[in-house]
Nucleic acid binder design. Structure first.
Lengths: 340, 340
DNA sequence: TTGAAAGCGCTAACAC
DNA sequence: GTGTTAGCGCTTTCAA
């Protein structure tokens, strides 16, 4: 750990030129070749590194973008984060990752703090999108892109997907397999994904009302494996006489919980019980049995969010944009076998 | 997106006090109660939020800490990141996550850039720790904590664990199960974890040389499931006549790859082949069969690194500290059944 | 306890 | 093409 750093005036002095010339020479615009050389040499000699604080204060830009997310540990967000990081890093921005907490109020606090000069832009994927949060986001002093549901009406850029339709695809898939006794394992319905996926399930079974014999929903406390196991026990336990033959889960972690609960109950997946997930995470892909899942293309959503953000940064006058990503069912072992 | 923000002079003017008084009143030191009230009121009215750039320039502190890591997607790093984030956020620091790339050179670039004023401290967990990287870290202008191997000799604070000993524990475990034909599935040996784990395996089998009949090592191209599957195919394929009865893998992802390859080959885990992993990730815990794994306590290592960092920040004069974390074997289904 | 003023390091007018 | 200078918003001496 070294004591301190060289500043631009020191570089200028060593090079025998003015402060402004040194700045221009390093920055590249409007300086003679000789000047650039001299300044470069001096900078190298001193090990000069520009101080971002001074630059930020003057330019009013931080070259940082925040990604605010409820649960850093969720593989979906990790995928988005990597994609965003890759896209913005190419353009000279750093990614700051922030945890929102899982309430709207804590998200609002975070957004307000971040927007007050820490970052040039904010990509946020909140678990709960309330009216208060939306108005906070509208009043942000920096560009905002939301990953979640469409906020076109509110005039906020967003990347969204049809998770309701995705659940519909999963329901149609298990029906096509000949399954007629279908359980839906959802996460908390007061969250943005939870409510959308519930709607997707309800609409799907309403549309196919003559196809299914039994339809039942159980809500888990959280979108995690542990919560999924507990909720799936309850769900399967309610139908011991005439067991369910398919569980559609609201995400991969819940689906894995369902498979574990099924195994406890002596059920074979997929022979006795077909199980589908959502998000198409790596853990689902390598699970045993590998998990049929509805991909919501997290990495692509992250990449698109980053692109929207970069455009907003480049042309602040450009209005908000709304982008959709189509879900896609990926069939794997957890639904692959025919029911005997 | 609102046009702009209130500044401290504006707050001071509205409150009818001087700039200095406004600063003191908001910051809390040496201001009368009446002053604090007036300034607070004015600040609230204007929705004042202090600008971090000005504050950073003046105080020479960013209140940001960086976590630099090769692979953001690896569950181990995600766990560390959450732990670090939780610990530093309590103390008013933000966490900036940066990707080092997987070479020492790209790590050096990153460290140099970050240390030049973007952050007040740097927690780094590099895949490859070279001499060049070590000397770069020593010359950093900000405190550095390394998670990986001990850097006590170099005078750099570090959090390390005995992953070699952890591999030894896994070997002892499968030997105790009566397995005698043992394969080691490692990642790249030119990485810090790869070389330590190789050493751990070699020492363990040397120490137990009369216990094992067959000992074989295969190196995967990467610490991932996909690389693990490919390498495990090779490893298992080399012993078709007299098959291996245990595979010790260098991390959980490789272990899962080994289980998949074993299944392809018609082997039952654990009856035919016992498999152990390392890192004790959630994916291993919920896998089917659940994975016996050596916990390296990633979350705790992250927490400890954060604590070391906070101490370095509080007392810059305090010397570098070195902390060890003991690995712990967690036995689960992938080794639980006795060999028939 | 309060106010005046300096200055952190940088970029961008502006003048030459 | 180069130099001079102002000033971004803040904290912190130093005087009063």
């Amino acid at each position: 750990m070294v004591s301190s750093r060289a500043t631009l005036p020191q570089v200028a002095e060593l090079a025998g030129v003015s402060l402004a010339s040194a700045s221009r020479a390093l920055h590249g615009t409007g300086a003679s070749k000789a000047m650039v050389e001299r300044v470069r040499a001096a900078a190298d000699e001193l090990g000069y590194q520009p101080d971002p604080a001074g630059r930020t204060l003057r330019m009013r830009r931080t070259f940082q973008i925040a990604f605010a997310v409820a649960d850093i540990g969720n593989p979906v967000y990790v995928e988005m984060m990597s994609a965003i990081q890759g896209a913005v890093a190419d353009r000279g921005y750093r990614l700051v990752v922030a945890a929102t907490g899982d309430t709207a109020a804590s998200t609002i606090d975070l957004v307000r703090g971040l927007a007050a000069g820490h970052v040039d832009g904010l990509v946020v994927s909140p678990l709960r999108i309330t009216d208060d949060l939306v108005s906070e986001l509208r009043e942000c002093t920096v560009p905002v892109v939301v990953i979640g549901r469409s906020l076109e009406d509110a005039g906020i850029s967003s990347v969204s997907t049809d998770s309701a339709g995705g659940i519909g695809a999963a329901v149609a898939h298990v029906l096509a397999l000949g399954r007629r006794r279908i359980g839906f394992l959802n996460g908390p319905t007061d969250t943005t994904p939870g409510s959308a996926r519930q709607r997707g399930f309800d609409e799907a079974v309403a549309g196919e009302r003559f196809a299914a014999e039994v339809v039942d929903t159980q809500t888990a406390d959280d979108f995690t494996v542990a919560a999924g196991v507990a909720a799936a026990r309850t769900l399967l336990g309610r139908h011991e006489g005439a067991p369910l033959d398919a569980v559609v889960a609201a995400n991969d972690l819940l689906a894995i919980g369902a498979i574990k609960a099924a195994r406890e109950a002596g059920l074979n997946v997929p022979a006795d019980l077909a199980v589908t997930g959502m998000d198409d995470t790596e853990i689902g892909q390598v699970y045993q049995p590998s998990l049929t899942s509805v991909s919501l293309r997290s990495a692509e959503r992250g990449r698109l969010a980053a692109e929207l953000m970069l455009r907003l940064l480049d042309e602040p006058s450009s209005g908000p944009a709304t982008v959709f990503v189509e879900p896609e069912l990926r069939v794997r072992e957890s639904t692959r076998e025919e029911k005997p």
